[in-house]
Amino acid sequence: MSLRWKLVLPLVAGITLLVPSTATWAASSSSSSTQQAAIRLEDALHALQIPHVSLLFAYLESIQLSSQEVSQITQNAAQMQKIMGNINSPNQLTLAQKEEALRLFISSAALAHLQVATVLTNGQPVNLLTYVAQPGNPLLIELEDEQGKLLATIHPQYYDVQPKYLNSFIHNVAVAATSARILEQSKTFVPVPHGQLPVTASNTPLKIAIGLGLILIGAMTFRPLYRVAQKLES
C-alpha cells in the first residue's frame, strides 16, 4: 500500500466515524434543547398557578405558533410590564390603563390560540374593567382551546392579583409561548417532564351513603315524633 493511501485511509475512516457521531451529537443536542423547552414550558405553566397543566401543555405543544405570534406575545409582555411598573395595586390603574392591559392580555391569549373566560367561583362572568380585586371575591381565569374546550383554570388569590404577580404572569405567558414553539417543531410528542398523578378519588359513593343515612334517620325519628304529635293533638 502506498504512503498516500496509508494517510488517506485513516482520514476516510475518521470521517466515516465522525459523521455519524456528529449527527448523533446534533440529534442529542436537539433532543436536549427540546427537553429544556419542555421543562421551561411546564415551569411557566406552574408559575401561572395552573394546578393541572397536562391538557394545556399538550395543546400548546401541538398548535402551530408562528415566530411572529411568539414575538408579538413577547412584545405584549414588555408593554404590560411598562403599564404595571409604577403602581402598587391593579385597583390603582386608570380605566385607559385597564383597557390597554386587558387588550394585551386577550391579544396574547389569542396569539397563543387560546380563549379566555373570566368568571367568579359561582360561574358568573366578570368584566375585568370593572372588577375590583378584594378578599372574598375570587376570580377564575378559564383557558379554552379554539373549539371552546376547557384546558386549564387559573385560581389567582387576592394576594396574587398584584402588579408583581401580573408582571410575572405575562412574562410566563411569553416563556410558555417561546418554549411551545420549540416543542412544536419536534417530530415526536414531548411528554410533560414531571407530571403529577391525577386525582382519581371521587366521593360519590360516600354522598350516596350520606343520602341513605338521612333517609334512615328521618324514618327512625318519624314514628316516635308522629306518636308525640298525635298525643299532643288529642
Binding site: 360519590t204 359513593p205 354522598k207 350516596i208 350520606i210 343520602g211 341513605l212 343515612g213 338521612l214 333517609i215 334512615l216 334517620i217 328521618g218 324514618a219 325519628t221 318519624f222 315524633l225 308522629y226 308525640v228 304529635a229 299532643l232
Partner: peptide, 23 residues
C-alpha cells in the same frame, strides 16, 4: 314534629337520587 323528619327523608331521597344517578 312531623315536618322535620319528613324534610330529612326528602333531603335524603334527593341526595341519593342525584348522586345515585351520577354513579
Amino acid at each position: 314534629l312531623i315536618g322535620i323528619p319528613s324534610l330529612i327523608i326528602a333531603l335524603g331521597v334527593g341526595v341519593t337520587a342525584v348522586f345515585g344517578w351520577s354513579f
